[in-house]
Design a protein around this nucleic acid. Structure first.
Lengths: 329, 329
DNA sequence: GTGAAAGCGCTAACAA
DNA sequence: TTGTTAGCGCTTTCAC
């Protein structure tokens, strides 16, 4: 592997001059610069990342920890992050926590060896103490699940708003016994949506029944399995914590000849691409993962460059997407 | 940031001894080792990645270049790669080329600064000369699109086999004028499937009509737009290069009240999760992205550890998944 | 079983 | 405008 000194020797200059040519730093005559750049081409010189980052203390890398890359919301987030970073000369170190706390911890450890300049995390069942240590060591942006009392930058979706909108729509469509499939209790997103659910029921004088509000790990299989439970309890509709769960519910209905939306109404959350192409298109809430990705990456880079941070807490407004799974209006 | 010398001083030993304790290398008494490890805990010491990799010339990082992370096949591949790497102490540097050649090149450059120990690439419109240079510098595993004459490790899906199976099934179901939406001409996957298409038609004495075989960039929108073109040409069925394209076709049919499978038969490729949950479930070919991810990562690590490589060219067999979009058997 | 010296490839700071 | 020196934090080599 050819190094900076080989180039220097080849050009009859010092290593420092080559470094300057490559980094546009300091004063350097146009001719020598061009000569050096040409030599780098010819010799196939590539600056050594480790050496550079050892001295500059910068990696131009950002770590992204997400629960599940095969979930479309997160893949959109990843794409948004990736595009924004790439545009600004940064690389992405992707960590798929698989919704496991231990994996998340392992990755946090892995990243904290100085592999990245900052960490963006979409945490699973977050607790304050999990992130207090790392927060002192490396810039951190948290997303989706707010951790109370943690002085970290946060970008969230307005879950209360999104859920209120869709539940209100459900009530307006005439549904009265609305079953819910939540995410884990430690998920603030899930809790906010539950709060909205309760408030909208109260607004409409509908009794809250805790036995038709179920907790889950927010997977497709959970949707499939819990649909059975809820339907046996006589709900007239189901609000799923995300579209993937809703797809599980829909699969159950499909296999059991339960008509959507007349036997049962279904509402999702996320607006994944396929939601619009179902037998009965899914009414859902669009969180715009790609926008989230961009914003979270932008926040990170602002943090790194010390640029003005408008707010330590950014809340994005999701949008209700009305389709046919809650009957026609 | 606390470094190895701080730990050494704290323990009253040399930096070297600390290094040994951390790496299980060389001889070291059990007591000192434990004492040092405990001190590392206490001081919150984290080994510096850059310094370590500067001397060892290892990063424990693998770069993955894929066309589009929001495509489910690639997100499954990514998950497969990620899990396997994580299991073996490696990290994943994800590069989303966005199906753009220039992005791919930029990433290749970025990675070749010694940021990773090896590169796994799912190339877009690959040409031999694009990879000859990089191949000399860093271990490379190519996937999906074979590049003729390039002496690189390759993992592919048997596209000829997969396409033959599904086209044969189409013919058996009575379809005679089968329109095709291909990927780019430079994609060997696409070309192999086209070859299978031609061979199966010939086998069955069906004339090959080049005007119902269209090229595309393999996106959802391409499926939607080209469906119109093909249907106006009077095809009785469409074989889409992937499920995403097929979903585009299905959306077109849905919006135009064209009945699947009676007005038109649809076949996809990839078996993404949602294919089974469509109004009319999609007959497709399962490439098992997660298995592909695992195999490609395994090949990479074998390459790095110099372990026996069974073959430089691994071909995985995909599986025909029969559902209802080509009528019931 | 442990330590001292050297150096990985680069850039910051200062000197010329 | 260019060069010299030093050192980033670690491991390799060799000596004890």
């Amino acid at each position: 592997m050819v190094n900076i000194r080989d180039v220097a020797k080849y050009c009859g200059v010092s290593a420092m001059t080559v470094s300057r040519a490559l980094n546009n730093s300091g004063q350097i005559s146009k001719e020598t610069k061009e000569r050096i750049l040409k030599a780098c081409e010819e010799l196939g010189y590539r600056p050594n990342f480790a050496a550079r980052s050892l001295v500059t203390k910068k990696t131009n890398m950002i770590g992204l920890i997400i629960p599940d890359i095969t979930n479309q919301y997160y893949s959109q987030v990843s794409k948004g992050v990736s595009s924004y970073l790439s545009l600004h000369g940064y690389g992405l170190l992707l960590c798929n926590s698989d919704r496991k706390k231990e994996e998340e911890k392992r990755y946090l450890n892995f990243l904290s060896e100085g592999r990245v300049d900052g960490i963006i995390i979409f945490p699973v069942k977050p607790k304050k103490e999990d992130y207090e240590g790392i927060l002192k060591e490396i810039p951190l942006v948290m997303a989706d699940n707010y951790v109370d009392g943690l002085n970290a930058n946060f970008v969230g979706n307005d879950n209360y708003h999104g859920a209120s909108e869709i539940i209100r729509h459900m009530v307006k469509q005439g549904f009265k016994k609305i079953g819910v499939i939540l995410g884990p209790t430690s998920s603030s997103a899930s809790n906010e949506r539950l709060r909205a659910y309760k408030d909208v029921l109260a607004e409409n004088n509908i009794e809250y029944l805790s036995d038709i509000v179920l907790e889950s790990d927010a997977t497709f299989d959970d949707g499939f399995n819990l649909a059975k439970v809820l339907i046996e309890k006589g709900v007239d509709s189901i609000f799923a914590i995300n579209d993937t769960v809703a797809l599980g519910v829909i699969k159950y209905c499909y296999l059991n000849n339960i008509n959507i939306p007349y036997d049962i109404g279904i509402a999702g959350y996320d607006n994944i691409q396929q939601s619009s192409m179902l037998p009965v298109p899914l009414t859902t809430v669009d969180q715009n993962g790609s926008r989230m990705g961009k914003v979270v990456a932008e926040t990170m880079l602002n943090l790194l460059t010390g640029g003005a941070i408008i707010s330590k807490k950014i809340i994005l407004k999701p949008q209700l997407v009305i389709r046919k799974s809650l009957r026609e209006s």
